[in-house]
Every structure is written in structure tokens, then in C-alpha cells.
Write a protein that binds this DNA or RNA. Sequence first.
RNA 1: GGAGAGAUGGCAGAGUGGACGAUUGCAACGGUCUUGAAAACCGUCGAGGUGCAAGCCUCCGGGGGUUCGAAUCCCCCUCUCUCCGCCA
Length: 431
Amino acid sequence: MLDVRLFRTEPQLVTDSLLRRGIHKEQIDEIVALDAQVRELSSSRDELRSRVRALSNEVGQLFRSGDKEAAEDLQSESRALGAQEKDLDLQAEELSAKLRDALLHMPNMPSEDAPDGASEHDNVVVRTEGFDPESYAPHQRVPHWDIGTEHGILDVERGVKLSGSMFVMYRGAGAALVRALCQLALDRNADLYEEVRPPTMVRTATMVSTGHLPKFIDDAYHLERDDLWAIPTAEVPLTSLARDEILDESSLPMRFMAHTSCFRREAGSAGKDTRGLLRVHEFDKVELFAYSTESQAQQLHAEVLARAEQLIADLGLAYRVLDLCAGDIGASARRTFDIEVYAPGVERWLEVSSVSWFGDYQARRANARYRHRDGKGTGICHTVNGSALAVPRVWAALVETNRQADGSIAIPELLQPYMRGLKSIGGQLGV
RNA sequence: GGAGAGAUGGCAGAGUGGACGAUUGCAACGGUCUUGAAAACCGUCGAGGUGCAAGCCUCCGGGGGUUCGAAUCCCCCUCUCUCCGCCA
């Protein structure tokens, strides 16, 4: 969430920035007004409290010195003040809860460097690599769901039987490919990133920290009986790893990577892009994540993007990088680059990675801080994250791109060691 | 799932109704001494809110209650540990 002091001291800056993502001015004015009321009420309440405390101390002294009558007089005076204090406290609490709720729903301020725009149509293509629409042969222009069935490596029907639509089952070499992609992504980043295997189900507070709750409640799976949420991305547990902790500045940046299942209800996208692996409720992903200081954050953002991008390039996929416009950036982020791969079988660009800088927005929600190097005071961490590799769409683009004239699928060389040396699926090239 | 014990600052650990935001130790930081370091000694040392400031206020796992006054008493919840049961 944003620092409420920013609304107080720089209302114009906040307004200008949030207007870029479609927030109305009245919503901002409401926060400014609530904040003023809360502070006024709190200071009146604190003043009363202070007097009650002073009186109580006197009461104690009087009782000890044996002046019972004077003590009882002060007692009743204190009691009356206490009642007033309680009344003011109730009002202050009510308003500050309202203020906090309004702040939790308020998105982050987009970076000044993020392009203007209202929707995904305004995103800016920064670069496109390895893409030539004319270069794809007819044997590559087959959708992955057909290829998957052809080789028995993707069992959509049984996935649906088990769990419903938009759940899939990988089989044989297809399942091995899922595992290979994840392990490859982990191994390539192990030089700097500590591998973490976090829980996949988390408490409400953990979901609130990243901004997935309360605003996007409909997108998340919830286990009511135990009040646990299935994570939509490893970003959720990783952001809470240091929740309510104070890190040493010297330990920053702190880099983590995690391979987890990710669960998404996709409530707003019923019937859209639902074939095959285009959009599924459960998928594997390797996420890169870092806690940092303010000054380190943007360099890390670039680092994560470079790593995600290089992996896609090394897998031999055509891709492009998008600089998301202010209106399309996720609510918690200040700037986001998306990586999309081209899938020739479905003839579409598929988003496979979203690399975001969150400023201190998430860390403030998570109360993740660091102690300044000079030992004086604390600062709120900045967080950065991005998918190193999200399986289904990479799997789809890979299978389509690498389909040979004979129908077999060539396995990229860097994946072969992770697939027991398999060089090809379904062809004579196989071992 | 059953029984018991516990939750206090970065860590350890006192405090069981009145000057306690909290004794003390360790760690950390600054200094003296030293060629340098260690040791010793002196000092500083929790996090927030609000205010120009002095100050005031909040926080002893979370929530509620009793009281003039709660870290301390009462109730509920969460978590941790030990034993039993079950179990990959």
C-alpha cells in the first residue's frame, strides 16, 4: 500500500500519478479527508489518555500516603475522563479502519518511466527477437493440443475428468518436459538466487501482503474449512518470507527463487483463450524474487528481466518484450515488463513472464523492513519479482515451434540432460 | 485428535495491579587505551504514530473484559514446545 503521508504531503503528485491508471480524484480526496479526521480524533484522544494516566498516578500516590478521600475524588474524575476517552477512541478506530481499507484498495503509483495508456492495447513493444512470421512451415502451424494428443503427451480430456475444464494432465515425455523446464530454470539461476520451496497454501495475511487480497478475492482459490488460500504465484509466500521482520541492510539485496504450483480461478475470463494450455487453473512456475533497498531495486528489476529473457532466447523461442502502460500494470506494481513468446501453432503471442518492480508497496503491506547500515532507523524494503519460467505456455510454444516435418518434436539441447537424454518426442531421432 | 507447559526488545531472560517501554546479560554502535587488534573501562542502544519543537500517545503473541490505573487479573483465539494417538 502507499504511504498515507504521501497523500497528506503530496496530494497533487499522488493524484496525477493515480489518474494515469484510472483512479478517480474523489477516491484520493476521500483518503486525504479521512486521514485528517483520524489524526484530529487521535490527538484529542491521546490528550485525554495522558490526563487519565497522570490522574491514575496521583491516585496511587494518595492511596499510599493514606489520603483516601482525595484519592476517591480523583478516581471519579478519572473515571469520567476515561468514558470520554473511550468514546473518542471508538470513533478514531472506526475511521482509521475505513482509511486502511481505502488504502489497501488503492493501487501503486506507476513509475514515471512507464508509458501512458489505458489498456493492454497501449503497451509498448520494446523489442522482438527471433520472430519471422513467414518462416514457419506448415508442420509448425499445428496447435499444441493436437500435437499433444498425437504423441500422448498432453491429456486434456482426462485432466477435465479429474478436475474440470482448464485443468490439464501431462503424460510421458510431456510430463518430463514440465519437470525439465522447471529444473533448467532453477539451475540457471542458482548462481545468485537461493532456492526456496514454500508452502502452496497460505493464510489470509500472506495474500494481503502482495495485494492479491482484498481486491482480487475472486481470482483466488480458498479452502474455507481451514481458511487457507492456494497461492496464485510463489511471489505470495516469498513476499511474506520477511513479513514483520527487520533485515540488515548489509544482507540486501536478498534473492530467492521458487518452483511451485500456481492456482488461478480465472474468474473474469470464462470461455476466453481456454483451449489447451492457453489458460489453465493450475500450473508450474519458477519465480525469481528479491528484497532490496530503494536504490538497488531498479537494477534488480533489469537483472530479473535479463535472466527471464535469456532463458526464453536460449530455448530457441521467438519472443518480444512489452513495457506495460500505466493503465495495464498490475495494481501492486510500479513498472512491469512482460515477455511474450510466439506460438506458431495457435498463431499468437503468449505471455510467459511478468517482471515487476513494486517499490515499497508490497513490503509496506508485509511490514518487511531493513535496518540502515549506520544503525539509525529502519526503511521499508523494495521488492522485485518475475517469472523465470511459467510452464504451460512455454511448453505449448516449444512443442509447436519444434515440430518437425515428420511430426516429431525436437528437444532443445539444453533440455536433453533433464529428459534422460531424450532428443526427440515421437520421431526416429529418439534414443 | 487428547493432556500439559509456554509466548516479554536483534538474541537470552527478569518482572505477577501503581513512576515499567520494561532489571540484567549477550550482540551491535561510538569513545578511551594500543603500532594495530583483543581485553578492560566509559557511553549509546527496541519499533511506530503525531507535532516546528518540547512533548504526548501506541506496542510485552492477537482480540475482548475488569480497574482510577494492566506486561501483571479474567475470557476467547492463534502459534510454539513436551507427552500420548494417528500418519507420508
